[in-house]
Design a protein around this nucleic acid. Sequence first.
DNA 1: ATCATATTGTAGACAATGTCTTACAAATGG
DNA 2: CCATTTGTAAGACATTGTCTACAATATGAT
Lengths: 105, 105
Amino acid sequence: MLGELEQVVLLAVMRVGKEAYGVPIHDEIQRRAGRDLTLGTIYKTLSRLEEKGLVASHVGEPTAQRGGRRTRCYVVSAAGKRSLQATFKALRHMASGLDVGLEPA
Amino acid sequence: MLGELEQVVLLAVMRVGKEAYGVPIHDEIQRRAGRDLTLGTIYKTLSRLEEKGLVASHVGEPTAQRGGRRTRCYVVSAAGKRSLQATFKALRHMASGLDVGLEPA
DNA sequence: ATCATATTGTAGACAATGTCTTACAAATGG
DNA sequence: CCATTTGTAAGACATTGTCTACAATATGAT
């Protein structure tokens, strides 16, 4: 079963798209969910998701940035997307008719 | 932050309504979410939710059933409902426009 | 060149949540 | 008053959530 943070991180990776590495993922979660996590939290979650095959990663091109390592970029795998969909389907079923801000689509 | 199972159990308590004790909660989760948990899992989660003030409980009347203890019945507190709503609001923000079966209401 | 600094990533530790198994309690029918 | 039925609680362990501390790399200034 997908944990709560795992769901959020998967969604953030999808949203960010092409350049989905640590910092942009972190920022997207902060902006959209108003949740202020450390980068360590993001990286740890990403690496657990990768172990489970729910995301895949590759080392990015060196950018003309100020400094830092090569970025590691992530994409959500097909299994990852299915996992999210299954999780949300069950949630919607549980929530239907309950006025908790999660009505069925 | 509400854990994934905590969300499901809170929703189940709301759904079941008046007679929300262990067994009916368990059955509701099984039917609606297709998730087969043990009663121990349900009780443990309920007691953690109660410690956090997200549900309240009282011991029920003895029924004219074959056996068993008095049931302990649960209701979701105002704080519990707010927690759920906040959780789902953030999720919907993260998911909007993503075809994962959780479009904004 | 080299050193301080900015940016990114990794590892380790610990807390919170998820989950089961096992034990315990209470009620009823014989 | 004891076996059976129904319900609850406690303990243990795995997984997930989260941080802090550290390592790696690139840049610009001295």
